[in-house]
Design a protein around this nucleic acid. Structure first.
Lengths: 130, 130
DNA sequence: AAGTTATAATTACACTTGTAATCGTAATGT
DNA sequence: ACATTACGATTACAAGTGTAATTATAACTT
């Protein structure tokens, strides 16, 4: 069975996101990195780490006195799951209305357009191959 | 100040989504409609309606003994806010990686592709106009 | 008018989340 | 060896959520 991704709260996600960037990492490494962004108390971060361990989202390995943490789930899996959940909920599974919404909000940049074109042409290429 | 959209839980969203489809509606109308999808007790739905009223997401109008509820926030506003939140969180504000992810998961249908092309050509047209 | 009933309002209660503080213990300094 | 400290583990506690049950009240029935 592929990747069953547990529910992860917003605060927990921020911790995970640091771990995805570099791992394994000690609690202190994570606290330091996080503090560039979030003014969270060390104790808070440790709580979040514990909860992530309980949820089996991360693992640790004892190293002397402290632990080295690593992600157990991949960012990709999480991203795919969350994206699908949102698109299903808001657009009944269809992606294009989301893109249209961004377009209407002028949230599309030339980079995005170029990327979209490339995605489309790849998609069309693959259609032929089948 | 434009639409300040309150935080809305998943269960509350389901109720709101029924109201967006047809309003105004009585609590019973909503319960009935919702029960096509969710096996929720009438009491549960009433609780959710109350919470939505408190959050100022919906309003009501007394009609004889019961109330008629209507949305106070537009679905569009909610959708825009949630979409932006997700894209900011997962893709640092860039939409195209989300589309790429869907493409990779084979979640793009011909309809989506056609819609995307149209969005792109509109976008390009507008660039000229400026 | 009194009893019954349909509604809304209030209360309940366990679980999750944000945000730590405190406790126990193993390592470190002196 | 003993005191201090640096960790992780346990506990805390209010707000939000899911999921109703109970209570108050206004309307309908007889």
């Amino acid at each position: 069975m592929p990747n069953s991704v547990p529910d992860i709260s917003d605060a927990e996600f921020s911790v995970l996101d640091v771990l995805w960037q570099h791992n394994p990492a000690s609690a202190n490494d994570i606290v330091e990195k996080l503090n560039e962004i979030k003014p969270w108390h060390e104790k808070t971060v440790k709580t979040l780490l514990n909860r992530l361990v309980k949820k089996q989202a991360i693992s640790y390995e004892k190293q002397q006195r402290s632990y080295l943490y690593s992600p157990l789930i991949e960012r990709e899996s999480y991203v795919v799951k969350q994206s699908k959940t949102l698109v299903d909920k808001l657009f009944r599974g269809h992606l294009s209305p989301l893109v249209a919404s961004f377009a209407q909000q002028s949230k599309l940049k030339k980079d995005d357009i170029a990327a979209l074109k490339s995605i489309i042409s790849d998609w069309e290429k693959e259609q032929q191959d089948d």
